[in-house]
Nucleic acid binder design. Sequence first.
RNA 1: CGGGACGUGGCGCAGCCUGGUAGCGCGCCUGCUUUGGGAGCAGGAGGCCGGCGGUUCGAAUCCGCCCGUCCCGACCA
Length: 549
Amino acid sequence: MIVRASKLFLPTLREDPADAEAVSHKLLVRGGFIRQLSAGVWTFLPLGWRVHQRIVQIIRKEMDAIGAQEMLAPVLTPAELWEASGRIRYPEVFKLRDRNDRRFVLPMTHEETFTFHAREIQSYRELPQFWYHFGTKERDEPRPRGGLIRVREFIMKDSYSFDRDDAGLEESFQRHAAAYRRIFDRCGLDYYEVEAEPGMMGGSESWDYLCPAGSGQNMLALCENGDFGADTEVARAVPPPPDFPERLDAPQEVETPGVSTIEALAEFLGIDPRATSKAMPVVTDDGTLVLALVRGDDRLLEVKLEAALQRSFRPAEEDEIRRTFGAGGGSIGPVGVSVEVVADEALREGQFAAGANRDGWHLRGVEAGRDFEPRFADIREVGEGDRCPNCGGALRLQVALEVGHIFKLGTRFPQALGATFLDEDGQERPIVMGSYGIGPGRVMAAIVEQHHDELGIRWPASVAPYDVHVVALPGAEEIAERAAERLDASGKSVLLDDRDARAGEKFADADLIGSPLRVTAGRKSLEDGAVDVRDRATGEDRRVAVEEL
RNA sequence: CGGGACGUGGCGCAGCCUGGUAGCGCGCCUGCUUUGGGAGCAGGAGGCCGGCGGUUCGAAUCCGCCCGUCCCGACCA
């Protein structure tokens, strides 16, 4: 197919849009791929939609290859389904009413809808099933940002597996994981498959596909030796060891007037800040007060504590702290308290300074197991300087973009919505479910984040808007046409720049748009009856006769 | 939801502090010249200055409220 630039709606911009920060945001807008309609709401212009469609097609092929069946579920969804699953209470769910006051939801994913249809599955003989669609998702995001990186409406490939038991789910999950790896490979992405925090989806296990990028909402912890990559929300790393002071046989009270920070405490006691501990009292959603304890130089990571407690929580308030510990926030500790203590793994060995539950006093030489009985859990945030849990190599943190997420959901939705089947023994059992999502728009943003230079985008051939960008310069229109036709005949998609514009402008647009090959027909090449072919990625140029294209 | 910034032709910006008939660059239209990396000259079109209210003889400019957009945080399949 030959598309003429003179007829194409391709509004390229010379300057970066003022409100863009992320590279992918700038280049996709400048290149005329996308335009914003409202915060987090984007239109794909012709070029952007072509790329989107190419990504969709790669996903579709790989989903079909594992036996998944494509269908299409609606956006408008009766609220009852979401009441049944309980997800209606999530604040980012768009809700609306019709003229008769019937309540609807605009889904962020389609677990409810697909489970609703899975109710027609009656026998183990019909299992497993893989269903998927490319559906529009809506999210009332509190803060959209970064072009296509975080949006309020987007298309997602979501698939759902239905199995009779956990072993079946494991198999379905692995097949999806393999398909996802092929998809991201074909898209030319550098990515990591990592354990993830399942968040509000729940379920027993989930994996994330994270792409290192200049912008993104996830943080990857990567080992210098390449044997470890994990989302910092779940990463379990080895913190640098403390330089412990001399061991004490029992905790010793020390008066520490006016000392409320870890730095001040370490300095006052003349010890390594790593040999101190920090107490964070929280109140869980059932009203229980819990004391979380991390090393003085560490930060508590809320999602990890939430996972450890299996409940959400809020920080305790000053009066709750005083009532429970008999001291203010800066002076509390784990010794002699009646509440549950969740201590970070880093506190398992050694003696640490801690608050004494007495204003203006601390304890030194506090030892877990001897002076208090905590429940240990990994609740600290991974930091620069940590070591790899596998090989001890240095970890570095890398911003990353989540392009896919797969979940072992189990029976939560089938149970809530009554999707059951009969097994060989005639027993009614809930279907065991998995769900698997990829955002093609995010994939597109991630590709641009990873494939660009100062001039523009360098699309991998598999997803480029056009295979070849033919630039027709004045006097060589005819040879350009012939080149385009020849390329078209050989099955390439061609963008022919036949606009009445200057050479520099055409080259700049070609670089910006970023198709993998550029073919230039102009006076220079005309002398040889040839064209110049340039590789966008390498910048390599060669002169080729039209007949040899 | 907390903090910060911004809103002026299509795009990027100045003007606002110190009120007095709205400006620059790019883009756009016409003509001539030019033509392998974003041309030159000449002429031209295009703006409820985000909205509403207030102060004032007079508001893009000062005050108030609202809306929108971006950034940081909280939040996030």
